[in-house]
Computed example of a mutant assay.
Amino acid sequence: MNVLIIENEIYLAQSIATKLESLGYPCQIVSTIHEAMQKPKSEVVLLSSNAGGSLCEMFIRQNPQAIIIMMIAYVSEDTVTKPIRAGAKDYIMKPFMLDELLRKIEHQLDCQRMKQQIIFYEEYFSFLESETQLSSSVQFYPPFVICCNTQKIADVYTIKMAKEKRFTLRFTTLRLYDWREVLQMAQRDIVLYVTHLESLKKGELKEFLNAMTDKNIIASIIASDEVDFPQVVNLVCRSSAGDFEGDILSIKEYEKCIIQKFENHYSDVELAKKMGISRKNLWEKRKRYGLEKRKETDLH
Protein backbone atom coordinates (compact mmCIF):
# COMPACT_ATOMS: atom_id res chain seq x y z
CA MET A 1 0.00 0.00 0.00
CA ASN A 2 1.42 3.38 -1.07
CA VAL A 3 0.43 6.52 0.83
CA LEU A 4 0.53 10.05 -0.54
CA ILE A 5 0.50 12.78 2.13
CA ILE A 6 -0.57 16.22 0.91
CA GLU A 7 0.20 18.52 3.82
CA ASN A 8 1.84 21.96 4.03
CA GLU A 9 2.67 21.49 7.72
CA ILE A 10 5.96 19.65 7.19
CA TYR A 11 6.38 18.50 10.80
CA LEU A 12 2.94 16.86 10.81
CA ALA A 13 3.54 15.27 7.40
CA GLN A 14 6.88 13.81 8.52
CA SER A 15 5.37 12.48 11.77
CA ILE A 16 2.63 10.68 9.81
CA ALA A 17 5.12 9.30 7.30
CA THR A 18 7.46 8.01 10.04
CA LYS A 19 4.61 6.17 11.78
CA LEU A 20 3.22 4.61 8.60
CA GLU A 21 6.63 3.62 7.23
CA SER A 22 7.46 1.88 10.51
CA LEU A 23 4.40 -0.29 9.83
CA GLY A 24 5.52 -1.07 6.28
CA TYR A 25 3.51 1.55 4.36
CA PRO A 26 5.74 3.51 1.93
CA CYS A 27 4.92 7.24 1.96
CA GLN A 28 5.48 10.27 -0.24
CA ILE A 29 5.07 13.83 1.00
CA VAL A 30 4.02 16.87 -1.06
CA SER A 31 2.84 20.27 0.10
CA THR A 32 0.43 21.20 -2.74
CA ILE A 33 -2.16 19.66 -5.06
CA HIS A 34 -0.03 20.65 -8.07
CA GLU A 35 2.88 18.57 -6.74
CA ALA A 36 0.52 15.67 -5.98
CA MET A 37 -0.73 15.62 -9.58
CA GLN A 38 2.84 14.92 -10.76
CA LYS A 39 3.12 11.81 -8.59
CA PRO A 40 2.07 8.25 -9.54
CA LYS A 41 -1.39 7.12 -8.38
CA SER A 42 -1.51 6.06 -4.73
CA GLU A 43 -3.82 3.65 -2.93
CA VAL A 44 -4.26 5.99 0.06
CA VAL A 45 -4.17 9.80 0.04
CA LEU A 46 -4.12 11.90 3.22
CA LEU A 47 -5.28 15.30 2.01
CA SER A 48 -5.01 18.41 4.15
CA SER A 49 -7.75 20.92 3.37
CA ASN A 50 -5.22 23.70 4.03
CA ALA A 51 -2.83 22.35 1.40
CA GLY A 52 -5.53 21.54 -1.13
CA GLY A 53 -7.65 24.64 -0.90
CA SER A 54 -10.18 25.06 -3.70
CA LEU A 55 -8.56 22.28 -5.74
CA CYS A 56 -9.49 19.51 -3.28
CA GLU A 57 -12.70 18.45 -5.03
CA MET A 58 -11.05 18.39 -8.47
CA PHE A 59 -8.20 16.23 -7.17
CA ILE A 60 -10.61 13.85 -5.42
CA ARG A 61 -12.68 13.37 -8.59
CA GLN A 62 -9.51 12.70 -10.60
CA ASN A 63 -8.48 9.93 -8.19
CA PRO A 64 -11.59 7.77 -7.69
CA GLN A 65 -9.44 4.65 -7.15
CA ALA A 66 -7.79 6.11 -4.03
CA ILE A 67 -8.90 6.01 -0.42
CA ILE A 68 -8.84 9.73 0.36
CA ILE A 69 -9.03 10.89 3.97
CA MET A 70 -9.37 14.60 4.63
CA MET A 71 -7.23 16.15 7.40
CA ILE A 72 -9.11 19.24 8.60
CA ALA A 73 -8.90 21.95 11.25
CA TYR A 74 -12.70 22.47 11.45
CA VAL A 75 -15.87 20.96 10.04
CA SER A 76 -17.64 22.89 7.29
CA GLU A 77 -19.25 22.36 3.92
CA ASP A 78 -15.93 23.05 2.16
CA THR A 79 -13.78 20.84 4.40
CA VAL A 80 -16.12 17.86 4.80
CA THR A 81 -19.43 17.93 2.90
CA LYS A 82 -18.12 18.79 -0.56
CA PRO A 83 -15.05 16.50 -0.41
CA ILE A 84 -17.16 13.54 0.79
CA ARG A 85 -19.67 14.26 -1.97
CA ALA A 86 -16.79 14.30 -4.49
CA GLY A 87 -15.57 10.87 -3.34
CA ALA A 88 -13.43 11.28 -0.22
CA LYS A 89 -13.95 8.35 2.17
CA ASP A 90 -13.49 9.96 5.59
CA TYR A 91 -12.05 12.87 7.54
CA ILE A 92 -10.08 13.43 10.73
CA MET A 93 -9.89 16.56 12.89
CA LYS A 94 -6.54 18.18 13.70
CA PRO A 95 -4.86 17.71 16.08
CA PHE A 96 -5.25 13.93 16.06
CA MET A 97 -3.55 10.84 17.44
CA LEU A 98 -1.62 8.91 14.80
CA ASP A 99 -3.21 5.68 16.05
CA GLU A 100 -6.64 7.14 15.27
CA LEU A 101 -5.53 8.01 11.73
CA LEU A 102 -4.09 4.51 11.29
CA ARG A 103 -7.38 2.99 12.46
CA LYS A 104 -9.29 4.99 9.86
CA ILE A 105 -6.89 3.96 7.09
CA GLU A 106 -7.12 0.26 8.00
CA HIS A 107 -10.90 0.47 8.28
CA GLN A 108 -11.16 1.91 4.77
CA LEU A 109 -8.76 -0.72 3.40
CA ASP A 110 -10.92 -3.46 4.96
CA CYS A 111 -14.03 -1.92 3.40
CA GLN A 112 -12.34 -1.79 0.00
CA ARG A 113 -11.27 -5.45 0.22
CA MET A 114 -14.78 -6.44 1.25
CA LYS A 115 -16.31 -4.58 -1.69
CA GLN A 116 -13.90 -6.32 -4.06
CA GLN A 117 -14.87 -9.69 -2.59
CA ILE A 118 -18.56 -8.91 -2.95
CA ILE A 119 -18.07 -7.93 -6.60
CA PHE A 120 -16.12 -11.15 -7.22
CA TYR A 121 -18.79 -13.39 -5.68
CA GLU A 122 -21.62 -11.48 -7.37
CA GLU A 123 -19.95 -11.94 -10.76
CA TYR A 124 -19.24 -15.60 -10.05
CA PHE A 125 -22.86 -16.26 -9.05
CA SER A 126 -24.13 -14.40 -12.13
CA PHE A 127 -21.89 -16.67 -14.21
CA LEU A 128 -23.34 -19.80 -12.57
CA GLU A 129 -26.87 -18.48 -12.94
CA SER A 130 -26.35 -17.71 -16.63
CA GLU A 131 -25.29 -21.32 -17.22
CA THR A 132 -28.39 -22.67 -15.50
CA GLN A 133 -31.98 -21.96 -16.44
CA LEU A 134 -34.31 -22.79 -13.55
CA SER A 135 -38.04 -23.17 -13.47
CA SER A 136 -40.29 -24.11 -10.57
CA SER A 137 -44.01 -23.61 -10.16
CA VAL A 138 -43.77 -23.17 -6.37
CA GLN A 139 -41.75 -21.15 -3.90
CA PHE A 140 -41.75 -21.63 -0.15
CA TYR A 141 -40.28 -20.07 2.94
CA PRO A 142 -38.15 -22.36 5.14
CA PRO A 143 -38.36 -25.11 6.09
CA PHE A 144 -38.48 -26.83 2.69
CA VAL A 145 -36.64 -29.45 0.67
CA ILE A 146 -35.19 -28.98 -2.82
CA CYS A 147 -35.25 -32.09 -4.95
CA CYS A 148 -33.32 -32.16 -8.25
CA ASN A 149 -30.67 -34.11 -10.15
CA THR A 150 -27.53 -31.99 -9.53
CA GLN A 151 -26.18 -30.16 -6.50
CA LYS A 152 -25.24 -27.14 -8.58
CA ILE A 153 -28.88 -26.52 -9.51
CA ALA A 154 -30.02 -26.69 -5.88
CA ASP A 155 -27.24 -24.29 -4.81
CA VAL A 156 -28.07 -21.73 -7.50
CA TYR A 157 -31.78 -21.87 -6.63
CA THR A 158 -31.12 -21.40 -2.90
CA ILE A 159 -28.65 -18.53 -3.28
CA LYS A 160 -30.90 -16.79 -5.79
CA MET A 161 -33.85 -17.04 -3.41
CA ALA A 162 -31.77 -15.75 -0.50
CA LYS A 163 -30.78 -12.72 -2.56
CA GLU A 164 -34.35 -12.03 -3.63
CA LYS A 165 -35.85 -12.50 -0.15
CA ARG A 166 -32.90 -10.81 1.58
CA PHE A 167 -32.21 -13.45 4.20
CA THR A 168 -28.84 -14.69 5.47
CA LEU A 169 -27.63 -18.19 4.62
CA ARG A 170 -25.33 -20.48 6.56
CA PHE A 171 -23.99 -23.51 4.66
CA THR A 172 -23.38 -27.04 5.87
CA THR A 173 -23.37 -30.58 4.45
CA LEU A 174 -24.38 -34.00 5.71
CA ARG A 175 -21.25 -35.41 4.09
CA LEU A 176 -19.15 -33.80 6.82
CA TYR A 177 -21.46 -33.62 9.85
CA ASP A 178 -23.80 -35.99 11.64
CA TRP A 179 -27.43 -35.09 10.94
CA ARG A 180 -28.12 -34.58 14.66
CA GLU A 181 -25.30 -32.02 14.88
CA VAL A 182 -26.67 -30.25 11.82
CA LEU A 183 -30.11 -29.87 13.38
CA GLN A 184 -28.50 -28.19 16.39
CA MET A 185 -26.88 -25.61 14.10
CA ALA A 186 -30.29 -24.20 13.09
CA GLN A 187 -31.02 -20.65 14.26
CA ARG A 188 -34.09 -18.43 14.11
CA ASP A 189 -32.50 -15.44 12.39
CA ILE A 190 -30.24 -17.32 9.91
CA VAL A 191 -31.41 -19.86 7.33
CA LEU A 192 -29.34 -23.04 7.46
CA TYR A 193 -28.78 -24.55 4.01
CA VAL A 194 -28.12 -28.29 4.35
CA THR A 195 -26.88 -30.27 1.35
CA HIS A 196 -26.60 -33.97 0.44
CA LEU A 197 -29.61 -35.47 2.18
CA GLU A 198 -29.12 -38.39 -0.21
CA SER A 199 -26.11 -39.47 1.90
CA LEU A 200 -28.47 -40.48 4.74
CA LYS A 201 -29.95 -43.93 5.15
CA LYS A 202 -33.72 -44.16 4.74
CA GLY A 203 -34.39 -44.28 8.46
CA GLU A 204 -32.05 -41.36 9.17
CA LEU A 205 -33.57 -39.32 6.33
CA LYS A 206 -37.05 -39.84 7.78
CA GLU A 207 -35.89 -38.75 11.26
CA PHE A 208 -34.08 -35.72 9.86
CA LEU A 209 -37.10 -34.58 7.85
CA ASN A 210 -39.42 -35.03 10.84
CA ALA A 211 -37.06 -33.00 13.03
CA MET A 212 -36.60 -30.12 10.56
CA THR A 213 -40.32 -29.30 10.27
CA ASP A 214 -39.96 -26.56 12.90
CA LYS A 215 -36.43 -25.48 11.95
CA ASN A 216 -35.23 -22.56 9.82
CA ILE A 217 -33.71 -24.95 7.27
CA ILE A 218 -33.51 -25.40 3.50
CA ALA A 219 -32.30 -28.89 2.61
CA SER A 220 -31.34 -30.32 -0.79
CA ILE A 221 -31.43 -33.90 -1.99
CA ILE A 222 -30.13 -35.29 -5.27
CA ALA A 223 -32.77 -37.86 -6.12
CA SER A 224 -35.60 -38.69 -8.49
CA ASP A 225 -37.85 -40.34 -5.87
CA GLU A 226 -40.60 -38.41 -4.11
CA VAL A 227 -39.64 -36.85 -0.79
CA ASP A 228 -42.07 -37.10 2.12
CA PHE A 229 -42.09 -33.53 3.42
CA PRO A 230 -44.83 -30.85 3.57
CA GLN A 231 -42.93 -28.42 1.32
CA VAL A 232 -40.84 -29.76 -1.56
CA VAL A 233 -39.46 -27.80 -4.53
CA ASN A 234 -38.98 -30.11 -7.50
CA LEU A 235 -36.67 -28.30 -9.88
CA VAL A 236 -36.94 -28.57 -13.62
CA CYS A 237 -33.70 -27.28 -15.06
CA ARG A 238 -31.74 -26.67 -18.21
CA SER A 239 -27.98 -26.84 -17.75
CA SER A 240 -25.99 -25.71 -20.76
CA ALA A 241 -22.97 -27.47 -19.32
CA GLY A 242 -24.78 -30.79 -18.97
CA ASP A 243 -22.86 -31.39 -15.75
CA PHE A 244 -23.87 -34.64 -14.03
CA GLU A 245 -21.41 -34.03 -11.16
CA GLY A 246 -20.66 -37.73 -10.81
CA ASP A 247 -24.20 -38.55 -9.64
CA ILE A 248 -25.93 -41.76 -10.69
CA LEU A 249 -28.91 -40.85 -12.86
CA SER A 250 -31.87 -42.90 -13.88
CA ILE A 251 -32.15 -43.78 -17.58
CA LYS A 252 -34.89 -41.16 -17.96
CA GLU A 253 -32.80 -38.45 -16.26
CA TYR A 254 -29.80 -39.38 -18.38
CA GLU A 255 -31.86 -39.16 -21.60
CA LYS A 256 -33.19 -35.77 -20.50
CA CYS A 257 -29.70 -34.41 -19.78
CA ILE A 258 -28.31 -35.73 -23.08
CA ILE A 259 -31.13 -34.07 -25.05
CA GLN A 260 -30.55 -30.77 -23.21
CA LYS A 261 -26.80 -30.88 -23.69
CA PHE A 262 -26.63 -31.78 -27.38
CA GLU A 263 -29.85 -30.42 -28.90
CA ASN A 264 -28.00 -27.33 -30.17
CA HIS A 265 -25.09 -29.32 -31.60
CA TYR A 266 -27.04 -31.75 -33.76
CA SER A 267 -30.19 -31.78 -35.84
CA ASP A 268 -33.09 -33.92 -34.59
CA VAL A 269 -32.22 -36.60 -37.13
CA GLU A 270 -28.55 -36.72 -36.05
CA LEU A 271 -29.36 -36.62 -32.32
CA ALA A 272 -31.94 -39.39 -32.62
CA LYS A 273 -29.47 -41.52 -34.59
CA LYS A 274 -26.72 -41.04 -32.00
CA MET A 275 -29.16 -41.96 -29.20
CA GLY A 276 -30.25 -45.06 -31.12
CA ILE A 277 -33.89 -44.01 -31.39
CA SER A 278 -36.21 -42.71 -34.08
CA ARG A 279 -36.93 -39.03 -34.65
CA LYS A 280 -40.53 -39.66 -33.59
CA ASN A 281 -39.29 -41.28 -30.38
CA LEU A 282 -37.09 -38.24 -29.71
CA TRP A 283 -40.11 -35.98 -30.13
CA GLU A 284 -42.09 -38.15 -27.72
CA LYS A 285 -39.30 -37.99 -25.13
CA ARG A 286 -39.17 -34.20 -25.37
CA LYS A 287 -42.90 -34.06 -24.78
CA ARG A 288 -42.72 -36.53 -21.87
CA TYR A 289 -39.88 -34.66 -20.14
CA GLY A 290 -41.36 -31.21 -20.78
CA LEU A 291 -38.46 -30.13 -23.02
CA GLU A 292 -39.55 -27.68 -25.67
CA LYS A 293 -36.94 -27.29 -28.36
CA ARG A 294 -35.47 -23.79 -28.23
CA LYS A 295 -35.87 -21.60 -31.25
CA GLU A 296 -32.84 -20.20 -33.09
CA THR A 297 -33.51 -16.74 -31.60
CA ASP A 298 -33.23 -18.21 -28.09
CA LEU A 299 -29.78 -19.60 -28.78
CA HIS A 300 -28.03 -16.27 -29.35
Rank of each mutant, 00 (worst) to 15 (best):
D189E: 14
D189L: 00
D189I: 00
I190Q: 10
I190E: 10
I190K: 01
V191H: 08
V194W: 04
V194C: 05
T195Q: 06
L197Q: 01
E198Y: 01
S199P: 04
S199W: 03
G203A: 09
E204I: 02
L205G: 05
L205K: 01
K206W: 03
K206V: 06
K206H: 07
F208H: 11
N210I: 04
N210K: 03
N210D: 08
N210S: 05
A211W: 05
M212K: 00
T213G: 14
T213C: 10
D214I: 13
K215D: 10
N216Q: 04
A219Q: 15
S220P: 09
S220K: 00
I221A: 06
I222C: 15
D225Y: 06
D225M: 14
D225E: 08
D228F: 05
F229G: 08
P230F: 00
P230M: 00
Q231T: 09
V232C: 08
N234C: 11
N234A: 15
N234D: 11
L235F: 01
L235R: 07
V236L: 12
V236N: 10
C237V: 08
C237S: 09
S240L: 13
S240E: 13
A241I: 05
A241C: 13
G242N: 04
F244R: 03
G246C: 03
I248D: 15
I248F: 13
I251Q: 11
I251D: 05
E253K: 08
K256Y: 02
K256I: 02
K256L: 04
C257I: 03
I258N: 15
I259N: 05
Q260Y: 07
K261M: 00
K261G: 05
K261R: 08
F262S: 14
N264Y: 09
H265P: 11
H265S: 15
Y266C: 06
Y266H: 06
S267T: 12
S267K: 02
S267H: 06
D268E: 13
